[in-house]
Amino acid sequence: MSEFPFSGDKLDLDAYLGRIGLGRAGGPDPGTLRMIHRAHLAAFPFENLEILLGRPVLLDIKALQEKLVDRRRGGYCFEHNLLLAAVLERLGFAVWGLAARVSRDDGGVAPVTHMALGVHAGGQDWLCDVGFGGDGLLDPLPLRPAGPVPQDGRSFAVETRRHGVRVLRTLRPEGWSDLYAIGPERRLPVDYAVMNHYTSTHAGSPFVSRLLVQRTEEGVRRSLVGRALKVTRSDGSREQRDVGGGELREVLRSQFLIELDDADAETLVRVCSVVT
């Protein structure tokens, strides 16, 4: 297997660090891992705009750099975590891919379509995930039974279940609930190409039927699902309102740091009036 299965050798590391607001990065230790994890989340939004605009979601490192770093856009789990994996490889971390089954509110079984990362640092393995959106981790979490671990007003835990499955859980007002179940197998980029095809094209995927935009930073989490804009702060306060088509472009810019050109903005407003 290549020394850089996630193409870290092809990454423009300086451009990435500049994009997330870091002049430099330290060695492969837990402090550096936590710093990059937080900075990535604050800089890059979670979003599915390319799908709604009728364009393919490309996962090669050149395309990821061009979209997220150069064009200052965001993406969803495969884009975020594949880019982060390349960064961590380049910095000397031991990193491997994980795949997870996201829990459904209705109790049904979802396909395995979520990507996360395992990373070794400081003598232990960590769960890293900058691509889950508004309910996800702010910091890396020990990849072993642990919890509750507080993170910026929320609590998370990892629980081990049958057949080597590990479940990421979060504490909500009504009690603990599962976010996703991680299988024991280590994954490679080719596996995510198959998952990405389903997620970006299948009629049953939530990413093809409505607008999903989220951004996580310390103290505040923002989400735009369909027309509903929600801002939740770590002190428990919350704001929510509907976003009209005429203000969508400005909301994407001011709340999620997404700049669209005139053509894409017009297309997105038209598509969202149909699918949301």
Rank of each mutant, 00 (worst) to 15 (best):
G133L: 03
G133M: 03
D139N: 15
Q124E: 15
R144L: 09
L141Y: 10
W126A: 04
P142Y: 05
P148I: 12
L138A: 05
L127H: 09
R144E: 15
V149H: 09
V158L: 15
D135V: 02
V158P: 05
P145F: 10
D129N: 02
L141C: 12
G136A: 03
P148C: 12
P140E: 07
G134K: 02
D125P: 05
G153R: 04
V149F: 12
G136W: 04
E159A: 13
V158W: 01
G153T: 14
A121Y: 01
V130M: 07
G153F: 11
V130Y: 04
F156V: 11
P150F: 13
P145V: 11
S155G: 13
F132W: 04
W126H: 07
V130L: 06
C128P: 00
T160H: 12
P140V: 13
D152V: 11
G136M: 05
G133C: 01
G134T: 05
R161M: 06
A121I: 04
Q151K: 09
V158S: 12
H163K: 07
R161Q: 12
G133K: 01
R144I: 08
V130G: 02
V130S: 06
V149K: 06
G123L: 04
R162C: 10
V149L: 13
D129F: 03
G136F: 00
C128M: 14
P140R: 11
D129H: 01
Q151G: 03
V158K: 09
S155D: 15
Q151A: 08
A121G: 03
L137P: 00
S155Y: 10
Q124A: 07
Q124G: 07
D135R: 08
T160S: 13
A146F: 07
E159C: 06
G122C: 05
V130K: 00
P140T: 09
A121P: 00
V149I: 15
G147K: 06
T160L: 12
R154Y: 06
L141P: 01
Q124R: 09
C128E: 01
Q151H: 13
P148D: 03
R154A: 11
L143A: 15
L143S: 04
C128Q: 00
T160M: 12
G122M: 05
C128T: 03
G153N: 13
D125H: 14
R154F: 07
G136K: 01
A157T: 08
A146L: 07
F156W: 14
V158D: 10
P148V: 10
A146V: 14
G123M: 05
D129S: 01
Q151R: 10
F156I: 10
H120R: 12
G136T: 05
S155F: 14
Q151E: 15
G122Q: 09
A157V: 08
F156Y: 15
H163V: 10
F156P: 03
G153A: 14
F132S: 03
P145R: 11
D125N: 09
Q151I: 13
P142N: 13
R144G: 07
E159Q: 15
D125R: 14
F132K: 02
R161H: 09
D152I: 08
T160R: 11
L127R: 08
G122E: 07
G122A: 08
V130H: 00
G134H: 01
D129Q: 00
D125Q: 13
G136D: 03
T160K: 11
P148S: 12
P145L: 12
P142D: 15
D135T: 03
V158R: 06
D125G: 05
L138N: 00
G131H: 03
R154G: 06
C128S: 13
E159D: 13
E159H: 08
A121R: 04
R144A: 08
